[in-house]
Structures are given as C-alpha cells and as structure tokens.
Design a protein around this nucleic acid. Structure first.
Length: 568
DNA sequence: TTGCCTAAAACCGGAGCAAA
DNA sequence: TTTGCTCCGGTTTTAGGCAA
C-alpha cells in the first residue's frame, strides 16, 4: 500500500468534501465488485437551494425541449406499479440524455426512441441472483437514477457472502461510463488520474481498473480509510503475526469462529489470512466504549444510532484492533483494511434513514441485525494509487496529474456533520486523550465541531453580486491545477451555475471563452423527492425539463503547458 | 399484485451577519 | 434597529425498490 505522506494540519476553508457521497453512509465501494468494468458513480445529497431563474444552456431552448420531449417515456398503462400517482407514474425509469459531439441530435433522438420503445427490455426489474457484468464502454450509458443503487447495490451485495457493502447516499447518478467516454472522446486514454474530491473513491477506482495511476483525496477520515484500502492497497496485508496469537487461534478454532469464518465464504487465493483476521475481529469481546456511550441504545447519551449489542460489538472490535496494532500484531496496512471492514459493517446496521443527520426514533429492522464484518474486496490486479487527506486547493498545487477530476460538493450541507458517526469511528484511533475527545461530543445527535472539515464549496454567500466563497474556491483550484486535462462533474442544482464553471475553466486555460458546444455535456436524470405535493408547495421545475428532472453537468478543458507552469 | 423496507431530500426553527 | 438572507441542526415523510 502506498501511503502519501500525511499533510500538515488543515487550514480552515477550501477544498473540503465529505463522502461524497458521497457517503458514509459512505458513498461507495461498488466499483470493487467482481466485474471488470461498470459505471457506478455516486453523488452527494442535494440541499435546497434558491430557485434558479432560468436554465442556462449551450443548446437552444426549443432544441433542448424537443430532445427532452422525445426522451420522455411513453405513457404507462393503468395497473402498472405507480401509474395512478399524481406525478404521472414516477416509477418510470429515468431517461438518459446526452448532448453534444459524441452523439448528434439525430442520433440521440433515434436512440431515445429506441430506448423508450424497448424500455421494459432494456431495464428489467432488479431481482436477486447472479449479477451480470456490464461494460463501461457499452453503447448506451447506464440509466441515471436518483438516490438508489443499481442491482449491484447494497441490497444485492448484502445478501451475497463476502461482498463489500455500503449504503450509499446521494448516488443519484451513474456517471462513470459517461466520464470515461467523455475523456476518451478527447483523446485521453491513460496516465495519472487525480480525483481530488474523492468521496467514496468510486471514480478513482474505476479509472484504476482501466490502468490509470490514480491519486485520490478527501478530507473525511471515513473516506480516507476506505481509499487507503480500495485505491491505495497494492497487496494483501500480512496477518501472520495476528493469526499466531494463541487466543486468536483458539477463537477461530471454536464453534463460533468456524461459523464466522464459514459465513465469510471462500477466500480468493492468497487472502485466507485476511478472511481469518476479519473473522477474529468480528468475534472480539463486546465492550461499553465511546460508541456505545455516545451513539447506542442503552448508552447514557440516549442516541439511537446503533442497537445496544451492536454498539458494544463495535467498541469491542475497535478496541481490539487498536491493541493488535499497538502490539505489532497487525501492520498499518492491515489496520486500515480491518478498520474499513468495521466501518462498513457499522454502516450497515446504523439506525438512520440515509444520513447521520438524525437517528430514527425506533430501531429499524436492519439496525436490529447483528453486526457482521466482511473482508474488503481488494483490487490487486490494477496499479495501486496514492491517497491523500487534505485541502483540495492546497493539494492541487503540490500534486500534478494528467487528468484532474473535480466533483466538488455542490450543496450547502457540510458532509462531516452529516456523517459524523462514521467519521468519529474512523478518526477515533487518532485521539490521544479519549476523555477529552468524548467531552467534545455535543448536541442531540452527538456531533463534533469538525471545523477543519468545513468546505468552502458548500458556502453560497456572495451577496451584493460578488462571487460566492464556493466560486472563489473553484476558480482558485482550477487556476492552480497542475494537470493537462480537467474534467468537472457538477449538479445542475448546485451552488455554481454553468457560466461560472465555464468562465473559471476558460480563465484557467487562458481561453477567451469556454466552448460549451464542444466541451460541456448534460446528463439528465430524475430527481429523488421524498415530499408529496402538499400545502400548496410548489416544486421547482427547470425550464425545458420535465417535473423532477435534473441534470448532471460534465465540463472539460485542456490546460496548455504554459498555464500549468504558471499556476504551479 | 401486495406490502415491507429504505433512501435522502424537504421542512422547520433559530442563530448570525450585513446592508439599508 | 430592522430587514432579509444564509447557514445550521434536528426531524420526518413517502416514493420507489424489491421480494414474496
């Protein structure tokens, strides 16, 4: 595992991004499922934002509206699921919409018609069973869907033995294939790929599988730990020192140990020790530690993020893992792998409804399930990447790359505070004074201040017509970037508007203006909406779009060598 | 077709800040 | 001092996935 040198203390401000998703509920880890390629991008949740007065577009409105109308699915017959809903059958699949040079309008229309007419065949209902691999280079991009996993998502995975699982937040898009094609259409086929707001790291892992040398960064510990494992891990850590401990051997040889090991399934060649280590950790003696006290049922804080038993088991496993590291029984690599396994297991039994912004008042069924650790699915065939945990704007000045991928936060939610529980679990090993650390936990939901993990990209601000903190940070980042190819993924509903992003990229590349026709794409999908229409509430409908339709933007710019030197 | 379960965005109230 | 806006913390709802 190649670990980048830890960064100096983080300055307050720019470049923060939580799990981006996305997501601890960790936006994530699907890219490591056993398939060679496949677009499974994940996004962060939206926050409410002020209405946009108009839909800024590089394509004329009549043309866009025509495209949207043609891409709308045919009306569904009554009797099908959801057809009598006031939203007119919201269960219909989202409609892919790609504009621009890779597909002409005529081609797009023809494809849209084909898609609509063959929708049922193209997107059969998900069902359990073997998952079919999907190539990222397939002719049709995967449909985008709001806030849901595809078949390979958590439910299916959770049922499969030994598979990595994580509930995702905000994964409203499936963009990996689109990003890959977007780059390939511009002649980019390899080199170093820097995902500076990595979140779950799904994009970085995807490009790692394609042979890129990936650099991944995020500010959150919970994201960092996973990326050390899924992006930075080059080989299976050595657990021989742990497995020769008499108590560990006894534990694994016992009835529960054998059952636990069996439940994990067959280990891939060379990973038998990893599976045994995970089983040993899963059987750690439960303890009443910080997680139980602060976040579990029965704990004195009264926060219902975990059941009583799971809270104690998380504490027991965490404390045992720390002891193993302290005694030299596991090395740093092994520590990260086991910690990632624990983080994912805890996430699966968290009593929440998507984010950790609030716990549910009663334990939901999944939270009553016993904590189950699973070995992370390591990608050992692709080149290992480097992982950072730091300020994006500072880091792009230090780390050069062929491709810089930017997927900054685009809403006003600070992710550290929406995913504080996994963040606490992930960073707890860094606390030198546990009592002082615990004393800083406050509020109904057990937040920590996380001042060092606030992101300028979540700040709208900018009254009186001036640029927002978000826009300032973005302009600074692309100006300072030391990369030839810059790709930006951003939500249509985000803080930045299209013109601001284009202007910043043009300025960074020394262009008079950004060429939206050539280097900008919109991928359309359906917005997830949990609220019904009530009390006269009016939901924003973007101009030229169907109700609940929202787009994901892709931007590209090539930075000439002179600008890269100048910005360094 | 039914019904359970989950996701994740919206709601709401309050604090803080800057302009008028 | 008032007004209007952003930001934050806490909570809930329900569309849609999925299994039976």
């Amino acid at each position: 595992m190649r670990l980048a040198r830890p960064l100096p203390p983080l300055e307050r401000g720019r470049g923060r991004r939580g799990l981006c998703g996305p997501a601890l509920h960790l936006r994530q880890l699907l890219a490591l499922l056993p398939r060679p390629r496949g677009p499974y991008p994940l996004r962060l949740p939206h926050a409410r934002g002020p209405p946009r007065s108009h839909h800024q577009g590089a394509v004329s409105r009549p043309r866009a509206a025509a495209s949207v109308a043609l891409l709308r699915p045919p009306p569904r017959r009554r009797g099908a699921a959801g057809t009598d809903r006031p939203d007119g059958g919201a269960r219909s699949r989202p409609r892919p919409l790609v504009r621009g040079r890779e597909r002409t309008l005529v081609q797009g229309v023809a494809r849209a018609r084909a898609l609509c007419s063959s929708r049922a065949a193209a997107f059969p209902r998900a069902r359990s069973g073997p998952l079919r691999p999907r190539r990222a280079t397939q002719a049709h991009p995967a449909p985008l869907r709001a806030g849901r996993l595809e078949r390979e998502g958590h439910r299916a995975v959770a049922r499969g033995a030994g598979a990595a699982h994580v509930r995702l937040i905000g994964n409203k898009t499936k963009l990996l294939g689109s990003i890959q094609r977007f780059l390939e259409a511009r002649g980019v086929h390899g080199g170093t790929f820097f995902d500076v707001f990595a979140g779950t790291g799904s994009v970085g892992r995807h490009f790692r599988r394609l042979g890129y040398r990936v650099r991944a960064n995020d500010l959150l510990w919970s994201s960092y730990v996973r990326q050390l494992v899924y992006v930075g891990c080059a080989r299976v850590p050595d657990f021989s020192g742990l497995l020769e401990l008499p108590q560990v051997r006894r534990r694994l040889a016992g009835r529960r140990g054998r059952a636990e090991r069996e439940a994990l399934g067959t280990a891939p060649p060379g990973q038998e020790d990893l599976y045994a280590a995970v089983a040993a950790l899963a059987l750690a003696r439960p303890r009443r530690g910080l997680i139980w006290r602060q976040y579990a049922e029965g704990g004195p804080a009264g926060r219902l993020y975990f059941s009583d038993e799971n809270g104690r088991r998380i504490d027991g496993a965490h404390e045992e893992l720390l002891a193993w590291r302290r005694d030299g029984r596991v090395g740093q690599d092994g520590f990260w792998v086991l910690l990632a396994s624990l983080l994912e297991a805890a996430d699966r039994v968290a009593n929440i409804s998507g984010t950790y912004g609030a716990f549910l008042k009663r334990l939901q069924e999944s939270a009553r399930e016993p904590l189950r650790l699973r070995p992370p699915l390591l990608d050992l065939r692709s080149p290992a990447g480097r992982v950072y945990r730091g300020d994006a704007n500072a880091l792009v000045r230090r780390v050069s790359a062929d491709v810089l991928y930017l997927d900054p936060p685009y809403n006003q939610r600070q992710y550290a505070k929406n995913y504080h529980v996994p963040e606490v679990l992930a960073e707890l090993h860094t606390a030198t004074d546990l009592r002082a650390y615990e004393a800083e936990i406050y509020g109904k939901t057990g937040l920590r201040r996380f001042e060092d993990r606030r992101s300028e990209y979540c700040r709208r601000g900018g009254r009186r017509g001036g640029p927002s903190p978000c826009e300032k940070a973005f302009r600074d980042l692309v100006r300072a970037a030391r990369a030839e190819h810059i790709v930006v993924s951003y939500s249509e509903e985000g803080i930045l508007d299209r013109e601001a992003i284009g202007a910043a990229l043009a300025e960074a590349a020394g262009l008079p203006a950004f060429d939206f026709e050539r280097d900008h794409r919109v991928i359309s999908h359906r917005r997830f909406r949990s609220d019904r229409n009530r009390n006269g509430r009016v939901y924003r409908v973007l101009e030229g779009r169907a109700p609940d339709e929202v787009g994901e933007w892709l931007f590209y710019v090539r930075k000439p060598r002179s600008r890269r030197r100048a910005s360094a």
